[in-house]
């Protein structure tokens, strides 16, 4: 294999798509999925750079990102469920009480 640049480019593309998704989608769960997509894209970059530099620190960092993502998903989905229970909606626009 010649270079890891294609992996980094792919990671950048996936990160961009995730960012656009967070900004445009209205369903809180889909917004969460886009956050996961961004985390995964950064993981791909970390693993690619680990291969580039020949040490395993990048893989360890990717592993920690996965752990934090798992914890974040658990709490985030619980918050979405609580909001849905009180407001009967999973849209991020409906949780706007702080505005008034």
């Amino acid at each position: 294999m010649d270079s890891v640049t294609p992996f980094i480019v792919l990671s950048a593309i996936l990160f961009t798509i995730g960012a656009v998704g967070v900004l445009t989608r209205r369903n809180a769960i889909v917004v969460f999925m886009c956050v996961e997509l961004m985390l995964n894209a950064s993981n791909l970059a970390l693993v690619a750079f680990a291969k580039q530099h020949g040490n395993l620190d990048g893989q360890i960092a990717a592993f920690f990102v996965m752990v934090v993502a798992a914890a974040e998903v658990v709490v985030g989905l619980a918050i979405i469920m609580t909001i849905f229970r009180t407001r009967r909606s999973a849209s991020v626009d409906d949780a706007s009480l702080l505005k008034y």
Binding site: N27, F32, E36, A70, V73, L77, F84, S89, S91
Partner: peptide, 24 residues
């Protein structure tokens, strides 16, 4: 972790919240 646990968690919550909760 990702496809086994996190995505299943997403699907569980989708089921609880309601599949028809589509985007506005």
């Amino acid at each position: 972790v990702y496809t086994g646990a996190i995505l299943m968690l997403f699907l569980f919550v989708l089921m609880l919240v309601g599949v028809d909760a589509s985007d506005s």
